[in-house]
């Protein structure tokens, strides 16, 4: 997908400190029109603070923060007319129904989508007269997204939209986000699920401790650090790793969780050599497979710790 024209979001050297805590410490990025941009990082990385500054909920300490080319501090109202916001916690009047909430939020905007169309779009048609407190977690999250779309916004902010949802509800939400993107809208989302970022985002910024560590497409981020793929199989005493390190194409060998991992620049040669060695010993490597590095590996490599620690 190509993205052209002026970026919908421009952030340059954004800083936001709370006392000694540098929640956001010099973050810069741009989001192009029609792009789904993801901020990936553990809790406390500064994702939510960044997104809340963009939504006009927090004042930045310093830096440039522009949405649609407008300064968020100077034009909060005209920006708010054109953005859709879903906050991390589901924030709804518990005793109002789906239809009432869509009507209420619609009344805040100059321009609005017909309520029924919106409710059907998030697949809550049969729950339209149910109070929000009686919806399931996934339904509440879909309602929350419907409320973010009530003004037909050009830019949508989704802060951890699938946290706490079961896999099926997560899938259905991903489809919803893909539908939003297909309409040419721009999306900024935060997540700490790397598979979510890989599934939805055109580009990803990996954040930790208030900094952007790396930015690019998922393939770029993986390819930049991990040129090799890994051949893996169940560890066997007859195939000691010191002997395997010398096999064709292998750059290093390691063992973790009962599996032996052979990082290789030339996977076919490595597998050929491995199978030949096993054949000589009259054994067969169990659960043999090939693995591509993931965003999780990228994050581990960047920070020395796993994403969800």
């Amino acid at each position: 997908m190509t993205h052209s024209g002026e970026p919908v979001i421009r952030v340059a050297d954004l800083k936001k400190h709370y006392g000694d805590i540098k929640a956001v410490d010099g973050v810069s990025f741009e989001v192009a029109r029609g792009e789904v941009f993801g901020m990936l990082g553990p809790n406390g990385a500064g994702k939510t603070t960044t997104i809340e500054v963009l939504e006009g909920l927090r004042e930045p300490d310093s830096g440039v923060v522009e949405v649609f080319g407008l300064d968020v501090c100077k034009h909060p109202d005209s920006i708010k007319q054109r953005i859709g916001v879903q906050l991390q916690s589901v924030a709804l009047y518990p005793r109002l129904t789906v239809a009432e909430l869509v009507d209420l939020f619609g009344s805040f905007f100059d321009h609005r989508v017909p309520a029924k169309q919106l409710i059907d779009a998030v697949d809550l048609g049969e729950r339209a007269n149910v109070r929000s407190m009686n919806l399931s977690g996934g339904q509440q999250q879909r309602l929350s997204i419907a409320l973010a779309l009530v003004n037909d916004p050009d830019l949508i902010f989704l802060d951890e939209p699938t946290t706490g949802l079961d896999p099926q509800a997560r899938r259905s939400l991903w489809d919803l986000v893909k539908g939003i993107q297909a309409k040419g809208k721009s999306v900024l989302l935060t997540t700490h699920y790397m598979e979510e970022a890989a599934e939805l985002c055109d580009r990803v910024a990996i954040m930790d401790h208030g900094h952007v560590l790396e930015m690019g497409t998922v393939q770029e981020l993986i390819g930049r650090r991990f040129k090799e793929r890994a051949v893996f199989f169940d560890t066997s005493a007859q195939l000691p790793s010191q002997k395997l390190a010398g096999l064709a194409g292998v750059t290093r060998a390691s063992q973790e969780d009962g599996q032996t991992l052979l990082y290789s620049k030339d996977v076919p040669s490595t597998i050929g050599a491995l199978l030949a060695m096993a054949d000589d010993l009259s054994i067969e490597p169990k659960n043999l497979g090939i693995r591509q590095a993931t965003l999780e590996d990228v994050f581990l490599d960047l920070t020395g710790r796993a994403l969800r620690d």
């Binding site: 006009g56 708010k80 916001v85 906050l87 916690s89 924030a91 709804l92 805040f108 905007f109």
Partner: peptide, 12 residues
């Protein structure tokens, strides 16, 4: 519940 905050993100 964050309702006041959510309303703060609208033009209200």
């Amino acid at each position: 519940k964050g309702i006041l905050k959510r309303l703060g993100a609208t033009p209200l």
